[in-house]
Protein backbone atom coordinates (compact mmCIF):
# COMPACT_ATOMS: atom_id res chain seq x y z
CA UNK A 1 0.00 0.00 0.00
CA UNK A 2 2.74 2.42 1.07
CA UNK A 3 4.79 1.78 -2.02
CA UNK A 4 1.86 2.20 -4.36
CA UNK A 5 0.88 5.44 -2.63
CA UNK A 6 4.44 6.69 -2.97
CA UNK A 7 4.48 5.72 -6.61
CA UNK A 8 1.09 7.29 -7.22
CA UNK A 9 2.23 10.57 -5.74
CA UNK A 10 5.46 10.41 -7.69
CA UNK A 11 3.65 9.80 -10.97
CA UNK A 12 1.28 12.68 -10.41
CA UNK A 13 4.18 14.84 -9.32
CA UNK A 14 6.30 13.90 -12.31
CA UNK A 15 3.43 14.21 -14.77
CA UNK A 16 2.28 17.59 -13.62
CA UNK A 17 5.89 18.76 -13.44
CA UNK A 18 6.30 17.83 -17.10
CA UNK A 19 3.01 19.55 -17.93
CA UNK A 20 4.09 22.65 -16.09
CA UNK A 21 7.51 22.67 -17.77
CA UNK A 22 5.72 22.32 -21.10
CA UNK A 23 3.32 25.14 -20.41
CA UNK A 24 6.24 27.32 -19.37
CA UNK A 25 8.64 26.39 -22.14
CA UNK A 26 6.06 26.66 -24.89
CA UNK A 27 5.41 30.38 -24.36
CA UNK A 28 9.13 31.01 -23.97
CA UNK A 29 10.01 29.22 -27.21
CA UNK A 30 7.11 30.85 -29.04
CA UNK A 31 8.31 34.18 -27.69
CA UNK A 32 11.83 33.61 -28.96
CA UNK A 33 10.57 32.91 -32.47
CA UNK A 34 10.82 36.21 -34.34
CA UNK A 35 7.41 37.63 -35.28
CA UNK A 36 6.39 38.10 -38.91
CA UNK A 37 7.35 41.75 -38.87
CA UNK A 38 10.74 41.45 -37.25
CA UNK A 39 11.17 45.08 -36.28
CA UNK A 40 9.31 47.64 -34.24
CA UNK A 41 9.86 50.75 -36.21
CA UNK A 42 9.05 50.16 -39.79
CA UNK A 43 11.84 52.01 -41.48
CA UNK A 44 11.45 50.29 -44.80
CA UNK A 45 8.91 48.21 -46.63
CA UNK A 46 9.34 45.80 -49.49
CA UNK A 47 7.19 46.79 -52.42
CA UNK A 48 7.67 43.73 -54.59
CA UNK A 49 9.78 43.09 -57.65
CA UNK A 50 10.66 45.85 -60.07
CA UNK A 51 9.82 43.57 -62.97
CA UNK A 52 6.23 43.20 -61.74
CA UNK A 53 5.71 46.94 -61.59
CA UNK A 54 4.91 48.43 -64.96
CA UNK A 55 5.97 51.83 -66.17
CA UNK A 56 3.55 54.72 -65.70
CA UNK A 57 1.64 53.07 -62.86
CA UNK A 58 1.27 53.28 -59.12
CA UNK A 59 0.34 51.31 -56.04
CA UNK A 60 -0.53 51.98 -52.43
CA UNK A 61 1.66 50.41 -49.74
CA UNK A 62 1.11 50.05 -46.03
CA UNK A 63 3.95 51.65 -44.19
CA UNK A 64 3.35 50.99 -40.50
CA UNK A 65 0.19 52.97 -39.98
CA UNK A 66 0.83 55.25 -42.94
CA UNK A 67 -0.41 54.63 -46.48
CA UNK A 68 2.26 55.36 -49.09
CA UNK A 69 1.84 55.79 -52.84
CA UNK A 70 4.60 54.35 -55.00
CA UNK A 71 4.79 55.64 -58.56
CA UNK A 72 6.83 54.42 -61.50
CA UNK A 73 7.32 57.27 -63.92
CA UNK A 74 7.53 57.01 -67.69
CA UNK A 75 11.29 57.20 -67.39
CA UNK A 76 11.17 54.12 -65.18
CA UNK A 77 12.16 56.17 -62.14
CA UNK A 78 10.46 55.30 -58.86
CA UNK A 79 9.05 57.82 -56.41
CA UNK A 80 7.11 57.34 -53.20
CA UNK A 81 5.05 59.75 -51.12
CA UNK A 82 2.79 59.65 -48.13
CA UNK A 83 -0.58 58.99 -49.74
CA UNK A 84 -2.79 61.00 -47.40
CA UNK A 85 -3.77 64.30 -49.01
CA UNK A 86 -2.54 67.26 -46.99
CA UNK A 87 -5.93 68.96 -47.33
CA UNK A 88 -8.40 66.59 -45.69
CA UNK A 89 -7.79 62.90 -45.15
CA UNK A 90 -8.49 61.39 -48.55
CA UNK A 91 -6.01 59.02 -50.22
CA UNK A 92 -4.40 60.42 -53.35
CA UNK A 93 -4.04 58.59 -56.67
CA UNK A 94 -1.69 58.70 -59.61
CA UNK A 95 -3.25 60.00 -62.83
CA UNK A 96 -1.63 58.03 -65.60
CA UNK A 97 -2.81 60.39 -68.30
CA UNK A 98 -1.98 63.66 -66.58
CA UNK A 99 1.24 62.48 -64.94
CA UNK A 100 0.15 64.05 -61.71
CA UNK A 101 -0.85 62.95 -58.25
CA UNK A 102 -4.48 63.71 -57.80
CA UNK A 103 -6.91 63.82 -54.92
CA UNK A 104 -10.45 63.21 -56.07
CA UNK A 105 -12.09 64.69 -53.00
CA UNK A 106 -11.49 68.36 -53.79
CA UNK A 107 -9.51 68.34 -57.00
CA UNK A 108 -6.15 68.71 -55.33
CA UNK A 109 -3.11 68.13 -57.47
CA UNK A 110 0.55 67.45 -56.76
CA UNK A 111 3.39 67.13 -59.21
CA UNK A 112 5.64 64.10 -59.26
CA UNK A 113 7.85 65.70 -56.63
CA UNK A 114 4.89 65.73 -54.27
CA UNK A 115 4.57 69.49 -54.54
CA UNK A 116 1.03 70.85 -54.20
CA UNK A 117 0.40 72.63 -57.49
CA UNK A 118 -3.33 73.30 -57.54
CA UNK A 119 -6.50 72.94 -55.54
CA UNK A 120 -6.85 73.17 -51.79
CA UNK A 121 -3.86 71.11 -50.51
CA UNK A 122 -1.82 73.45 -48.33
CA UNK A 123 1.41 71.46 -48.19
CA UNK A 124 3.50 69.12 -50.35
CA UNK A 125 3.30 65.38 -49.76
CA UNK A 126 6.09 63.92 -47.65
CA UNK A 127 8.47 62.04 -49.90
CA UNK A 128 9.81 58.59 -49.06
CA UNK A 129 13.06 57.10 -50.29
CA UNK A 130 12.94 54.34 -52.87
CA UNK A 131 15.80 51.96 -53.55
CA UNK A 132 16.01 48.93 -55.77
CA UNK A 133 18.06 46.13 -54.29
CA UNK A 134 18.53 43.10 -56.50
CA UNK A 135 15.40 43.93 -58.48
CA UNK A 136 13.36 44.33 -55.32
CA UNK A 137 11.79 47.68 -54.56
CA UNK A 138 12.41 48.94 -51.03
CA UNK A 139 10.60 52.05 -49.79
CA UNK A 140 12.07 53.66 -46.71
CA UNK A 141 11.39 56.59 -44.42
CA UNK A 142 13.01 59.83 -45.46
CA UNK A 143 16.19 60.41 -43.52
CA UNK A 144 15.89 63.37 -41.18
CA UNK A 145 17.82 66.33 -42.51
Amino acid sequence: MGISRKKFIDYILGGSLLGWLGSTLYPVLAYLKPPKVPEVNVNSVNAGMLTDFSINSSKILKFGRIPVILIRKDSGELRAFEATCTHLDCIVQYKRDEKQIYCACHNGRYDLHGLNISGPPPRPLVQFDVNVIRDEIVVSKPKPV
Partner: peptide
Amino acid sequence: MGLGVATLFITVLAIALFFKIRY
Protein backbone atom coordinates in the same frame (compact mmCIF):
# COMPACT_ATOMS: atom_id res chain seq x y z
CA MET B 1 -7.90 29.51 -21.81
CA GLY B 2 -4.13 29.13 -21.96
CA LEU B 3 -4.00 30.36 -18.41
CA GLY B 4 -6.49 27.65 -17.47
CA VAL B 5 -4.19 24.93 -18.82
CA ALA B 6 -1.12 26.33 -17.09
CA THR B 7 -3.01 26.87 -13.85
CA LEU B 8 -4.35 23.35 -13.95
CA PHE B 9 -0.86 21.88 -14.20
CA ILE B 10 0.46 24.15 -11.49
CA THR B 11 -2.44 23.38 -9.18
CA VAL B 12 -2.07 19.64 -9.66
CA LEU B 13 1.65 20.00 -9.14
CA ALA B 14 1.05 21.96 -5.95
CA ILE B 15 -1.39 19.36 -4.62
CA ALA B 16 0.96 16.49 -5.51
CA LEU B 17 3.78 18.33 -3.81
CA PHE B 18 1.63 18.78 -0.73
CA PHE B 19 1.02 15.04 -0.51
CA LYS B 20 4.66 14.32 -1.27
CA ILE B 21 5.69 16.50 1.67
CA ARG B 22 3.19 14.76 3.91
CA TYR B 23 4.43 11.39 2.74
